[in-house]
Structure formats: structure tokens, C-alpha cells
Simulated assay, not measured.
Amino acid sequence: MRRNCDGNVQQTSRPGFTLVELLVVIAIIGVLVGLLLPAVQAAREAARRMQCQNQLKQAGLAAHNYQDTLGKLPNGGRDGDHRVPDPLDDCCNSQTRYGWSWSYSILPYIEQDNVYDLSSESDDPLVGSGGNNTKENIVAQTAVPVYNCPSRRISTPYGSGMYRVDYAGNAGTRGPGSVRAAESSGKDGVIIQTDRARIRIEQIRDGSSNTIMFGEKALHRDSFGTEGGDNERWNNAGWDEDIVRFGAGKLADGTVYGIPPITDNRATHQESGAWTTVTDAGGISWGAWHPFFGSSHPGGTNFCLADGSVRLIAETVNGDIFRLLSVSNDGQPFEMP
């Protein structure tokens, strides 16, 4: 309002937004949100990928500390009862704590002593009595969040409340036949089947900075808790794809080839009640049980090398290079991808 020259109050009006102007502003805001949202999502994924890398690094450093204490790197696990001893090609998990997975063995070195101490050798069954360690399920029903990649899933119980692990030890070459056959025992990898052999970091002929120790395992989002490589307890899977994967394959004629990582959406899953298959570079088709490393991250899979360093390796990595990264004793030089 204002007064005119006669002293009377005169009403004035302010121009407002027209409907067209308002719609234009809303459209501009929508465009800005559309431009910013991918950047926000990318930043969140970068943070999740970094957290995943930190978790793998913890596992790698724990393996180093394990060796400092016990004189060797942790083994992967074994099936049956080592005291009898049962054959190493038995299935499908260990009756005693001695044969539990690497993911259980390194717990005291990632500040998870409380979980490690939930069971002891005194809980093992009497020799020849059958059954498993009586505290096996109590441990399996306890979440260890650092074993789950945040880009894939939060710690989630499956089947009778059992948790899973998203990381696998590098077992080197996957031979033809059963995963429990001697040719697939991890002896040319870093994480070796318990009682097959043992290794120290200094004994890795190809060098600890050129050899994978741990990596993410490929797992389709529709297969959580059901796929052959995700259907066992995180602490006691025996010698199984749940806790080890392979970066090289060997055919019956002796041909060795690389098995590069794949994205999670390429991993096997059920469609109309049947499992899909994934064919590797050697022409082998794999179903519910497969050897692939892989991840939910766009562009690559996280790996911890035997020297404790962590890096992202693309699914497009040359197969021969990935084979050399996975095999610990071939003595062949190469350039890191």
C-alpha cells in the first residue's frame, strides 16, 4: 500500500508467478534432481566399494597375523573327521572344528574373538560317534558383518538362521571332476584344502604382490542362500565353493585356461525351477555349483592380494592374466592389469 498526494491510502498489487512460470521452475528442479541423482548413487556405490575393499584388507592382514602366530597361512577347510582320518574327497562338511573354514580360523585376528570362542575342541563329537561339533550351529547363527559386501546384502540368516560369507579364498586351478578331487585342492593357489598341504607367504613362487589371496565370489541376487556356492554355513562349508573360488581351469586333456570374474547378474540362478548355466573360457558349463569370482560392483571385483594390498579388477581382464594372478607357482612373469 502507499498514500497518494491527497493523503489517501492507495492499494497496490504485486505481480505473482503465472502458471507457466511455475511449471518451468518445477521442470528445472526436476532436471536438476535427475542430473544429481546418478551422481549421488555413484558416490554411495563408491563408498560401499571402499567399505568392501577395507573388509577384504582386514581378511588379508588377518591371514598375515595368523601366519605370524601359527607359522602358516590359514587353510580353507575340509570335510569329514580328520581324526579317523576320513578321505579328503568326503562330503559335505567337517565333523570337527579343526576342519572349519578359513573364515572361522582368522576370527581372532579381526577382533572377533567372542565369535571364535563360541565353540572349542571339547564340543567335537567322540571319534566314530557321528554328528558334528555341538556348537557348530551356534557359531553359524552369529553374524560377522565384515564378511558381507555392502553392495550385495546386509548380513542375513538363511535356512535355520545360518549366515553366509561373500568372500572366497583363491584356490588356484579348478580341475575336472569333483571340487574335492586332488586337482582342485588349492595346492597351486593360496588357500589350500586343510590337510592337503600348507603354505607361507614367502613360499609363493610368483610373489605375494602378483597372487590373489581372497576375492568376492559371484552370486546372483535371486540365489542368496540357495546357490551351491551359498548354501552352507559360513564357518563350516567343508571344502566347497561357498568359501573358495578358482581363477584357472584345467581340462581333462591337461589344457589350463583362465576363469575371469563375472558380474553377479551373470551368475547362475533358477528360472522356472531349473538352474541357468554359465560357460567359462574352457567351454565348461557350470550350474548351481560354479568356480567364478565376481561382484555386485559396476566395473569390477575386489581382490586382496597375498601381500595384503587390495585392488579392483575388471570383468574384462584378459583370461591368461587372471590365470597368472590366481596360480601361485607357475613362475610366469606378467604385468598387473
Rank of each mutant, 00 (worst) to 15 (best):
L73D: 07
P108R: 04
P85G: 14
P85A: 15
G76C: 04
D89F: 09
D81Y: 09
W102C: 01
W100K: 04
N75C: 11
D81K: 05
I110E: 08
S94A: 15
L107E: 11
I110D: 13
N75L: 02
G77L: 09
L118P: 02
D81P: 12
V115C: 07
G77A: 13
S103M: 03
Y109N: 01
N75P: 02
Y98D: 15
Q95I: 04
Y109G: 02
E111Y: 08
G76R: 05
S94E: 09
I106L: 11
G71W: 15
D113H: 03
D89M: 02
G77K: 11
I106T: 03
H82F: 14
C92S: 14
Y98L: 15
G99D: 13
R78T: 15
D89V: 01
D79P: 05
R97C: 02
N75Q: 08
P108K: 12
P108L: 07
L107Y: 05
S101H: 03
E111C: 03
K72L: 12
I110P: 10
C91P: 01
S103I: 00
P85N: 05
D81N: 09
L88Y: 13
I106M: 01
L73M: 14
N114A: 11
T96K: 10
G80K: 06
W102Y: 09
G99Q: 14
Y116G: 00
Y116K: 04
S103R: 00
P87F: 04
Y116A: 07
L107A: 14
W100E: 07
C92A: 12
E111V: 01
R97K: 13
I106S: 00
L107Q: 09
Y104Q: 03
L73T: 10
P108F: 08
V115I: 15
V115Q: 10
Y109Q: 01
I110Q: 06
P87Y: 06
Y98I: 08
S101W: 02
C92D: 14
Y98A: 10
N93T: 03
W100A: 10
D89N: 15
N93E: 12
